[in-house]
Simulated scan of single mutants.
Amino acid sequence: MYKQEFPIILASKSPRRQELMKLMGLDFTIELKDIDESYPDGLSPAEIAIYIAEKKATAFTATENQIVITADTIVALDGEILGKPNDKVHAQEMLSKLSGRKHEVYTGVTLIKNNRTVSFYDLSEVFCREVTAEEIDFYIDNYKPFDKAGSYGVQDWWGLVVVERIHGSYTNVMGLPTEKLYQALSDLK
């Protein structure tokens, strides 16, 4: 069983990640650093998620007697990365692509403690039913998914009404694979 001995810094403004950390019973503070989230060409979605999580972590230098946790979530459809939408039209395009299809969600996580770095990722497959343009517009207008990779949140209307099933971790699709995070915290010495 993981017993928290050190302060934890969560380097994420995501309300979903913060909620999941609270539900895990972890005490943490939030500290944000501005980083460039670009990545080199040729990386797989899993490699991109880990690359960006590690990039976020390198912004933290003093990690003695504390744990820093960073994460990045990538939505991929047939190898195409679906990031956060730029605007409503971009969100409509992404959600139309997801309609009636299976896509993958990868979350890369990096933990730093005493300058030791541990990174991992999780993969979940998400299956969506077909949706109409009217449903997509309803979703965008009412749920404003502009801060979400792939233009949707599995914990809101889209997840309740459109997602038919998930193979893998539900919390990974939310943006933080809590099962793997708990194990990584338990193993971190």
Rank of each mutant, 00 (worst) to 15 (best):
P85D: 09
G83D: 13
D78Y: 14
E93K: 15
W158K: 07
A57W: 04
L26A: 02
A53H: 05
G108V: 01
N142R: 08
E47Q: 14
E164Q: 15
G175V: 05
T107E: 01
Q92D: 08
E104M: 09
P15M: 10
S12D: 12
I52G: 01
L82M: 14
T132Y: 06
E80F: 06
M174V: 13
S186A: 15
F28T: 00
I74W: 09
Q155N: 09
L32Y: 08
V105D: 01
S12K: 07
E19G: 03
E135R: 09
L77P: 11
K56C: 02
M94L: 11
D27Q: 13
A57T: 08
K33C: 04
P45Y: 02
K97Q: 15
P177S: 06
D72I: 08
L26D: 00
A91M: 12
K3Q: 14
P177L: 00
L160C: 03
E130Y: 02
N86K: 15
D137M: 13
D34A: 11
L160H: 12
I140K: 02
I136P: 04
M21S: 06
K33T: 04
A53W: 08
E134Q: 13
V131D: 04
K102W: 13
Q4K: 07
A71D: 09
Q4R: 08
T132V: 01
A62M: 08
Y152T: 04
D156T: 08
K56W: 06
P40A: 01
T63K: 12
I74L: 13
G159I: 04
W158C: 02
F60G: 04
V173L: 12
W158H: 05
R16C: 07
D87S: 11
M24T: 06
Y143W: 11
A59M: 11
A59H: 10
A149Y: 04
R116T: 13
V118A: 06
L23G: 02
H103C: 09
V118F: 06
D41S: 13
S44K: 10
G42T: 00
I9R: 11
L123R: 13
A11T: 04
R101L: 02
S96M: 13
L111M: 03
V173H: 10
F60E: 01
D122S: 12
V161T: 15
L98C: 11
E93F: 13
G168A: 02
P145T: 07
K144E: 11
T73V: 12
